[in-house]
Write a protein that binds this DNA or RNA. Structure first.
Lengths: 203, 203
DNA sequence: TGCAAAACATACTGAATAGTATGTTTTGCA
DNA sequence: TGCAAAACATACTATTCAGTATGTTTTGCA
């Protein structure tokens, strides 16, 4: 990577940290450049304005990160429901990039910017739909292999699961880690309810 | 109500509308007084600062509204699971105060202010816990009357349900009403999974 | 009805903000 | 190696913001 690209990425990564903690609108450009060794001239050389930086942040930092944490773990799954559970537990309890009190960066941005800025909303919607599609795909394959009940609706379940994730991330901000643990227990129960009652009788 | 109390309430209600749509920090006091016939002097006569106004808004506007929409409907319930479903459907599809693209005012405030301001966080946590307690109470009674399975954990289910609500509210901001309908279908399936398998064999 | 306190109204302040104008330095390559 | 463009750096501006200073009007009641 050349120096210019490094500066750009450095701005994006530091912006990501600040925006994750404080929100997009509450994070000033002055605060961003103060947290780096980059000046305002460099910032506006790399980005036309704050909005464009935010969109670059979504596609170049947030999106790859979410893909690694939310989509990749599902694609190599052999046990579908177990893989979905593990993805969720890892996201909630073990991912070192996430702090409970700050929630999920993607959920935060949806909350703040979704209704306010169409470009942000579109980018974030694509992110969300990619995750839901990955979950749907796992469930469709699981139906074929008889590991979830035949009348399971993958689209419904994907929306239900992703909604649960977004909601518990929100809740964790004010209730702390305990609610994650409780959520995960019921999440496992829910996933079990998708299994066939008598797998041995399947044909 | 005397005139002074009317002015105060008017400020709070208009503030609520603006904050619901734009967020707390993004709603300026100038914008609030511009949307009313109230001056800055009146605003700062009734509230020491913006933070205190926000806390008053939670306890005097948001909290009563949430109680009516989320707690009261559960307390007179005869069919517990049906009452929980109806509460959710009403919140998502029929409540005239909520706009899909703006989500839920309480969820929004948790997202934005929960990690930022301890007083906001505490007030919002009390609100959330009151809702979860109301759901737990319905479920405990339903266990006694045999309308949900005996090994159901009311605390887990309450957290799972409220998380689902918060998450789908977030999702609705960028996916629109369709995801509400899909969510509700799976929500019903989930609630059904809490029922006893063979109610007639209960004793 | 007088008058003190409550309830407002207006004009201002200093700090913070996104963005710009205008420079200087660094880099790649002909 | 010269030099044009890329990559930065600095100083500034117009606006917006929460909050204040200082006024005027309204209200309740002795």
């Amino acid at each position: 990577m050349n120096k210019s690209a490094g500066t750009r990425l450095h701005i994006l990564q530091k912006s990501f940290e600040l925006i994750y903690k404080n929100g997009f609108q509450a994070t000033s450009i002055d605060a961003i450049i103060a947290s780096t060794n980059v000046t305002k001239g460099a910032f506006f050389y790399h980005f036309k304005n704050k909005e464009e930086m935010g969109l670059a942040l979504i596609s170049e930092v947030l999106s790859p990160g979410m893909h690694d944490a939310m989509i990749s773990p599902l694609q190599a799954a052999t046990e579908p429901l177990e893989a979905i559970y593990q993805m969720m537990e890892r996201l909630l309890l073990h991912d070192p990039l996430f702090k409970i009190e700050y929630g999920c960066p993607a959920v935060n941005l949806i909350e703040e910017m979704g209704p306010l800025n169409e470009l942000f909303g579109n980018a974030l919607r694509d992110l969300l739909l990619a995750w839901q599609n990955a979950i749907q795909l796992v469930l469709k394959n699981a139906k074929i292999s008889g590991k979830v009940e035949a009348h399971t609706e993958p689209e419904q379940v994907a929306i239900f699961i992703t909604a649960g994730y977004g909601g518990i991330r929100n809740m964790g901000k004010i209730l702390g880690k305990d609610c994650y643990v409780t959520f995960l227990t019921q999440f496992r129960t829910y996933l079990n309810s998708l299994q066939p009652r008598n797998p041995s009788l399947m044909h």
